[in-house]
Every structure is written in structure tokens, then in C-alpha cells.
Amino acid sequence: MRVAILQIEGTNCEEESYTAFKELGQEVEYLHLNLLKKGKRNLEDYDILFIPGGFSAGDYVRAGAIFAARLKAIAMRALKDFVDEGKIIIGVCNGFQVLIELGLLPAVDGISEKPEAALMTNDSNRFECRWTYLKKENESIFTRDVPNIISLPVAHAEGKFVTEKKTLERVIENKQIAFKYVKPDGSRADYPWNPNGSMEDIAALTNPEGNVLGIMPHPERAFFPYQHPDWNRKERERGDGFWIFKSMISK
């Protein structure tokens, strides 16, 4: 598949993400927003749009807000078409924040004009880099090859998913929760297993159609077994994040 890894100043997980798709034999390229803006590239030429983590435009206001505003101004029409055609969009960390700002998630009634949820400041009130355990909640094209419980790292200051009660109910009803934070044995998480205080321990969400995924933890940082902190305790053939990438490209 043709994969675009979107870049602006301050995105900074693009190399790991690029490597992941490349390892899986995909046609992947970096797509700087300026190239879209100047019409040198078109979104419609890709099958997967990957919005990587980082601190887009510095995130000096609400995380992801500037990136989303610029993306909206340049390519909102194209983005809508992309989603409507059932093509895949995945936003990791800052990318998740961007998808919420764009209204592509949770999108319980389709793409929304205004954000219907937020990724707020962590309960700890600080940036935290730590490993978490995730449990697969619903099957989708992002999770079909993923084992029931996996381990991925988070690294963010704003990752607490919050929304109105009604929207949350719809999210659950629509089976939009892709992954929840859990304890290692799969039981309900408390801090630090839920690292940010996210509602319902939500770590990753899809849209109701299941072709847009936002995920706070970083699958691209756990693509290889030796990126895991416990590689000297547990043998893995692949990193846990591998399976998310694998799922996306499976036919």
C-alpha cells in the first residue's frame, strides 16, 4: 500500500514509523504539509495516512490544535474524501490529538465540525514516559492480528481522553474503543497502569466505521522485540507494536 507519513515542524516520530511500514514492504514516503499546500502531492494518491507523534508547531497551545488548523485549511475536503472512501488514517500520540481536533474522532455521528472530545493534561499534571499494558477491546482493521494483551510505551503530557457522558456512551455502543489500559494481568487499571486518568481507561479509539484510529501509546516504538524493556525477561518474535502495523496492511 502507499503510505504517507505527514510532517510539519515538530513532528518527530516519523523515522520509526517509516521504518515500520518499510519493514512490512510498503510503499512509504514522508509528506511534508508544505508539499500538500503547494499542490506538489495529493492525498488521494495514498492508501494510508499516518500522523506521527511529536510536538507539532511546538504545541504551545492545546496539543495538536495548530497542526489540525493548518491541515483543515489546506486539505479538509481531501481528508473527508479519504475517510469516506474507507482508506486508513492512523494518528499516534500527537497524531491522535490532531484527529480529535479535526473532528475525525470520535465522530460518533460522522466527522464533526468542532472537537467532540479532548485529550487533556494527565492527572499527574506532567509529561510521563512509561510502558503500559493494553487490552484489545474491539476488532477492527487495526487490531485483527494483535494479541489480546500487549505492551507499548506512552510519552505525553496530554493524553487523558475526556468527553461528554452521552458521547462516551455512543463510543462504547459503537464499539469504537480499540485499546484500554490494563494491569499486566488484564484487570482494570489504576495509576500508573492508566498513565493519564483517561475515561474508561481509553488508550485508543476508532471512528464508528473503523478506518480511523487514534492511539496515545506508540506502536512504532515497539516494532522490534529489543525495543521492549522486558526483552531480557520475555522472548518475543516481534515487538508488540508490529501487530498493529501488520493488521493495517493485511488484505
Partner: peptide, 12 residues
């Protein structure tokens, strides 16, 4: 933990 020590995915 306030420093991202995982970014770039090289920290083994």
C-alpha cells in the same frame, strides 16, 4: 520520566 527516553525507538 519527564524526559522522553524512547523517542527514535533506539533505546534498547
Amino acid at each position: 520520566r519527564q524526559y522522553d527516553h524512547e523517542v527514535q525507538g533506539r533505546t534498547v
